[in-house]
Design a protein around this nucleic acid. Structure first.
Lengths: 228, 228
DNA sequence: TCATGTAGTAAACAGTGTTCAGATGTCTAA
DNA sequence: TTAGACATCTGAACACTGTTTACTACATGA
């Protein structure tokens, strides 16, 4: 007895070795330069052996994305100690942007890349979101209560806006579509401040579905401000 | 005589056929599903033949990206007729976002994808930017003059902010990293209005390099507001 | 007519993800 | 101790990928 347990431990050990090898290659050379054969070579197994631990290459990268979310949660964990809710919100968003720089490959895999089908499909499975969303919606709610943000702001929609805005800044940093000398950090900073500034006033509401060249933009619950 | 000309015409014709085949495959199946062999099959040539017209697969996609910029310029051309500079600015940015939906593969190639090296390197070569930048910086300048935007706004930096913000909305739409039922259009809309609203006030300036957990974020010329 | 240059091809190289028959070794039960 | 069952791992293959190279067939200009 205990054999099954030992076998399972052995399986876990090799499974972990595969992930470690994949992670090292992936961090060093990027998603596109990781091949099953390279992983196999690193762990000194044949490529076919990997398939008895992971059903496909996709699943390896799904597992790495999960790691990425844990990493991101860690990176952002320090900001929960920021006392002021407004500063906490900003620190969290900035941590998100910084993560795209400290872990560009993880970030690409998690938020930008479209070539890992399982990630597109099962993205909402990551429990990361529930926890994080709650924290920062609370920040926004407090900012509304202390009248730092417009009373008519929808915390959930506002958080989405901030998040997606920072995603833009991160993407441009990663894809290097800026002129030489242009600073993605300054851009991310300015974007963040612009969005936050936009929340402090009711100005935005006057635009929604009125002056805009587009009406009825889908689910009303997702519209940033309640229509007064 | 005239032979050289005819030969050149023939070369151009085949070169165009290669691009057409590549474009069709690319629009229908995405960048990653276009192979030299598929292009070759479509034009009824051997794969090797393509290499006497384009040095590599990358160069084919560089040419397609150029097409993409022409397409984008066309898509946005209608908005230059919008009389009000503020509405013109908004219409242009919305056209940019819409382009990511009508031509997702082009958009991905042009602004998001990192797997075409020549695009990363020579991105600033596209003359698209000079022209477009001028138009929309002018809009912002006019909005400042009529006191719709803060006097302390830097038009170039502001345009970058708006552009990158919309890129975030486009990216999230493409990569489908939203919960089921969440509407990327509404998100893009709210983000745009938030950023524009942020420009109407001086509020943002009070944050720059003061309350922020980050100071000296690079080139001061890229900072959104002049430091008062 | 003949030499030159070019266009296009077949085949190969080195790589990719993945599958599968078979070998090898380990564990369990008789 | 032996026999059978099971798990593990490999070599070889399949069907792809981008790209290169030796070669052929043909049109051109002299």
């Amino acid at each position: 007895m205990g054999t099954k347990e030992r076998q399972q431990r052995e399986r876990d050990r090799i499974s972990e070795a595969i992930l470690t090898a994949a992670r090292e290659l992936f961090v060093a050379e990027g998603y596109r330069n990781v091949s099953m054969r390279k992983i196999a070579e690193r762990i000194e197994y044949s490529p076919a052996a990997i398939y008895s631990y992971f059903p496909s290459k996709d699943d390896i990268f799904f597992a790495l994305a999960e790691e990425g979310f844990r990493l991101l949660a860690e990176s952002g964990s320090s900001c929960v100690h920021v006392a002021d809710p407004f500063d906490r919100l900003r620190a969290g968003l900035w941590a998100f942007y910084q993560f795209s720089k400290t872990h560009p490959e993880y970030f690409d895999l998690m938020f930008v890349d479209r070539s890992v089908p399982s990630l597109n499909q099962d993205f909402q499975r990551f429990e990361f979101f529930q926890a994080t969303t709650a924290i920062f919606e609370d920040c926004i709610q407090r900012c509304i209560e202390r009248e730092q943000f417009s009373k008519r702001l929808n915390p959930s929609a506002a958080l989405h806006v901030l998040w997606v805005g920072m995603l833009g800044a991160s993407t441009i940093g990663l894809s290097q579509r800026l002129a030489p000398g242009e600073d993605p950090d300054a851009l991310a900073h300015d974007l963040l401040e612009s969005m936050l500034a936009g929340f402090t006033t009711d100005v935005g509401t006057t635009f929604v579905a009125s002056v805009c060249p587009f009406h009825a933009v889908g689910d009303p619950s997702k519209v940033l401000h309640d229509q007064a």
